[in-house]
Design a protein around this nucleic acid. Structure first.
Lengths: 370, 370
DNA sequence: TGACTATTTTGGAACGATCCAATAAATCCT
DNA sequence: AGGATTTATTGGATCGTTCCAAAATAGTCA
């Protein structure tokens, strides 16, 4: 049934022109006469021609219109939303994306990057797996493929990055809990050896110290950065002598787990225990109690990362640009703040449709040498 | 810095052989002498050669090692897990995947499919956006690209499909609620015009009728199939005269929203109101109360869909195969069933690591003419 | 040694689109 | 009408790989 592919030559023959003319039509060149253009387009439709990008990409001047996206845990809403944000701007820009999930495996990450490279991606956005080194991007950047690192930084890598201001966010969140009267505030979830966790914990400590509270780490409980991890973290936290009365969680997933764990022992999050998350995934708004969290606007972050990459692809320049997106605390109910009766949150809250990139506020941009 | 690409010819020159020999080495052909192979491989490493798949794919016999995956809502855990399952088997098979999110937009869907086609995918897995018609796959299948439709069927499409037994699952879930003594059982969430929703609602009705209960649809409340939709659905359901005492929800996201909504009005899911979900996303296990739900095993489904596609790609035959995966009710706490004291769920529950495809149980397979 | 296999290696012609230099056709200007 | 311009069109050659037929080399046997 499937005879061999229809090519430009077939179109040319059918339209009575040369393949060069067909090529010009395909590129919407103004050089070609309107009537011939029409004839060619008719032939294209007639024969069901499909453009072969692979062939076009052979010429070394061409750009493949493919980008790679690598994330470590797509089942985490944060990354799913991040990916969706990227998808939106990439689709609009006429790009198509390879997406791969590494599940924190460096081997998988290496494999997929290699594979994507063979397929000729013209750029890569990656949330690096734990343990990724600057050298892992070397071959990519050496061959002129721009790379944008998101969420987690990779020390020493000469690539662009889009991170969020974890320290400031954690500090603000902790200060808020302190202002609500809490004195024993835990930091729950996440692994101590990751940069993100380290930054958030640092902000947490800073706030405690500034308020004259002990910041000796006795109320820090590590766990997997997942909902299940949150459950175990709060369970362990409750065994500490001198229980915490509130917690800053590594991310929203952990925070939800913490809420689950609290309920399991008959405590109501918000009323009996203050819970603050980090990320502001979609469910944070609708959960009950609505989650007080530090908004990093994952979709917006994805969109911005995509835009950064596109800019580099289009300009042809691979000048690394490090930007830190500012974040802000969104006070809802899980922290126990006295909110008004209308239960949509406080005036700090975002309106449902208000998750565009401009909610991220002002950024600090610092430029790097390439 | 980036001189022009390193090609097989460069390797050939460096190793003192012909490009044909290099090509043979690349394909791990047994024809080539061990020593030459070593020399060639050394040169490859030396020069930092990267295989150009685009060029290789030009020969029409070649398969691109790229598949396309199209889903409609990646922010829904169900689809994220589905995608992760596919990703796993595709990566292992040496394939790389284009992933696109349509957000139920037929235009986007058309665009991405066209784009993927131009890039030469050798197969497509799609959870079709609402309103997708059989004709939308025609060009793909006509050119011999196998297509696997998952989750939602497309009437009349001559493509393979992997669906779940929604009717049976919903029936079983409803029967369970009835057996717990509920008489006024609502069906919450989802849009009436989708096939999936229709099937689940049908199972719900069947169970009600069989038990001699009214199935007039007065307790059916449609809403977006999301957490937010679940909140509004339960709110509206509570306004119905003769309130329901339990609900079968369109999917887990809705079920979580329903739990949120119940809490917002002071009702405890499981104790004061029976909630049953559909899908069994990861969080269903850890949520409090743990969600009683119909397990579709999204990751496993993704894996199976990927395997189906690979089988077709490798066999070269495009024989459509329709398979309906059986589902089973996982009784946890949100339905209010009397569970034992240990709070991990009942004996029906899955162990944490037990989400492999074989948990789906036996399937009914029916073969189609191609 | 010479004929005959096996084992390795190799030019060159695809594959499908692009792009440059060159040509052909149409239009303009005294 | 004849040259200068502008406007359209067109052959190759090229991109990096594969694959076939053919050739070179090594190995075997009488």
């Amino acid at each position: 049934m499937n005879r061999s592919r229809v090519t430009v030559v077939d179109i040319a023959r059918a339209a009575g022109v040369s393949k060069s003319t067909v090529s010009l039509v395909l590129q919407a060149s103004p050089l070609v006469n309107e009537q011939t253009r029409a004839r060619v387009n008719a032939a294209i439709r007639e024969l069901g021609y499909v453009y072969n990008r692979g062939a076009a990409n052979l010429r070394q001047t061409a750009s493949s219109k493919i980008v790679g996206i690598v994330v470590n845990d797509l089942t985490n809403s944060f990354f799913a939303e991040l990916a969706v944000g990227m998808d939106m701007v990439m689709q609009s820009a006429g790009f198509v994306q390879f997406l791969a999930n590494t599940g924190e495996s460096l081997d998988r990450q290496r494999e997929v990057i290699a594979s994507m490279r063979e397929h000729g991606i013209s750029g890569l956005i990656i949330s690096p797996a734990r343990g990724t080194e600057a050298a892992d991007f070397k071959p990519l950047t050496a061959s002129g493929v721009p790379v944008v690192v998101v969420v987690r930084n990779v020390a020493g890598a000469k690539v662009s990055s889009l991170l969020s201001d974890n320290r400031a966010g954690a500090r603000e969140a902790t200060e808020h809990l302190i202002s609500l009267g809490h004195r024993r505030i835990a930091f729950l979830g996440g692994f101590a050896d990751t940069a993100v966790s380290g930054e958030r914990m640092q902000g947490y400590r800073e706030a405690l110290s500034a308020a004259g509270l002990e910041a000796d780490g006795s109320l820090v409980v590590n766990s997997a950065p997942s909902r299940a991890g949150g459950v175990t973290a709060i369970e362990r936290a409750m065994l500490i002598s001198g229980r915490p009365t509130a917690a800053l969680c590594f991310n929203d997933a952990v925070a939800f787990g913490v809420c689950d764990g609290l309920r399991a022992r008959g405590l109501e999050p918000g009323r009996d225990f203050g819970v603050v998350g980090f990320d502001d995934v979609i469910e944070a708004q609708t959960a009950v109690p609505a989650l007080t969290t530090v908004s990093v606007d994952p979709q917006g972050m994805g969109r911005r990362a995509a835009q950064m990459l596109l800019k580099q692809i289009n300009s042809g320049r691979v000048e690394a640009e490090a930007t830190v997106a500012s974040v802000r605390l969104v006070v809802r109910q899980s922290c126990g703040a006295k909110t008004t009766t209308w239960d949509g949150g406080t005036s700090h809250d975002t309106a449902p449709g208000d998750r565009s990139s401009d909610t991220v506020g002002t950024d600090r941009r610092q430029h790097d040498r390439a």
